[in-house]
Amino acid sequence: MIHRSLAVLSVLGCSLLLIPAESSAQAQASCGPRHELVKLLADRYKEDPVGIGLSQPGQVLEVFASQAGTWSMVMTMPDGKACLIAAGDNWEMVTKAKGSPI
């Protein structure tokens, strides 16, 4: 996951802020203007939005995923700055069966 964050960082260039991860199990966050990050996810990874929700007041969490199974989580701040907060592989859409607890 870290190599993917670094790829995002290199494409967005010096307009990004790199926040170092505390451990190798955590991804590094790559931040920049939302429209640039969304375009990069679409162009490079063929990822489109599959989920969205409010986190903190004014912060929006989005999940992007591709047909190939790659996925990214993006947090957008009220000022329009977006950060890639997690990314991975093997994304699967789960649908709840009627009467199922999950």
Results as ranks from 00 to 15, higher is better:
2 I>H: 11
2 I>P: 01
2 I>W: 04
3 H>P: 10
3 H>V: 05
4 R>W: 09
4 R>M: 08
5 S>T: 06
5 S>M: 08
6 L>P: 00
7 A>T: 04
7 A>E: 12
7 A>W: 00
9 L>E: 04
9 L>C: 11
10 S>V: 00
11 V>I: 08
11 V>C: 13
12 L>W: 05
13 G>R: 09
13 G>V: 08
14 C>N: 11
14 C>K: 13
15 S>R: 11
15 S>M: 09
15 S>T: 09
16 L>F: 01
17 L>C: 05
17 L>V: 00
18 L>Q: 04
18 L>R: 09
18 L>W: 08
19 I>A: 14
19 I>D: 11
20 P>K: 12
20 P>L: 14
20 P>C: 11
20 P>I: 04
21 A>F: 00
21 A>T: 03
22 E>W: 03
22 E>S: 12
23 S>Y: 01
24 S>T: 01
25 A>F: 09
25 A>Y: 06
26 Q>P: 02
26 Q>V: 06
26 Q>W: 03
27 A>N: 07
28 Q>D: 02
28 Q>E: 07
30 S>E: 02
30 S>V: 10
31 C>P: 00
31 C>A: 15
32 G>F: 03
32 G>I: 02
33 P>M: 11
35 H>N: 12
35 H>E: 11
36 E>R: 14
36 E>F: 07
39 K>V: 02
40 L>V: 08
41 L>M: 14
42 A>W: 05
42 A>F: 09
42 A>K: 13
44 R>C: 04
48 D>V: 13
48 D>Y: 09
49 P>Y: 03
49 P>L: 15
49 P>N: 07
49 P>R: 15
50 V>A: 15
50 V>Q: 14
50 V>H: 10
51 G>I: 02
51 G>E: 05
52 I>G: 10
52 I>Y: 03
55 S>G: 14
56 Q>I: 00
57 P>V: 05
57 P>N: 14
57 P>R: 15
58 G>I: 07
58 G>R: 10
59 Q>C: 03
61 L>R: 12
61 L>D: 06
61 L>K: 05
63 V>T: 14
64 F>S: 14
65 A>L: 07
66 S>W: 04
66 S>N: 11
67 Q>W: 05
68 A>D: 13
68 A>I: 01
69 G>M: 13
70 T>D: 14
70 T>A: 15
72 S>G: 08
72 S>M: 06
73 M>P: 01
73 M>H: 02
74 V>R: 03
75 M>S: 10
76 T>I: 07
76 T>M: 07
78 P>H: 10
78 P>D: 09
79 D>R: 04
80 G>P: 08
80 G>M: 09
81 K>S: 10
81 K>T: 12
82 A>H: 04
83 C>Q: 05
85 I>H: 06
85 I>V: 15
86 A>G: 13
87 A>H: 07
87 A>W: 01
87 A>I: 03
88 G>D: 08
88 G>H: 09
89 D>Y: 06
89 D>W: 04
89 D>E: 13
89 D>G: 07
90 N>H: 14
90 N>C: 11
91 W>T: 01
91 W>C: 12
93 M>Q: 11
93 M>C: 06
95 T>W: 01
96 K>Y: 00
96 K>D: 01
96 K>F: 01
96 K>W: 01
96 K>Q: 12
96 K>N: 05
97 A>C: 03
99 G>M: 07
99 G>Q: 08
99 G>L: 10
99 G>T: 01
100 S>W: 02
102 I>T: 07
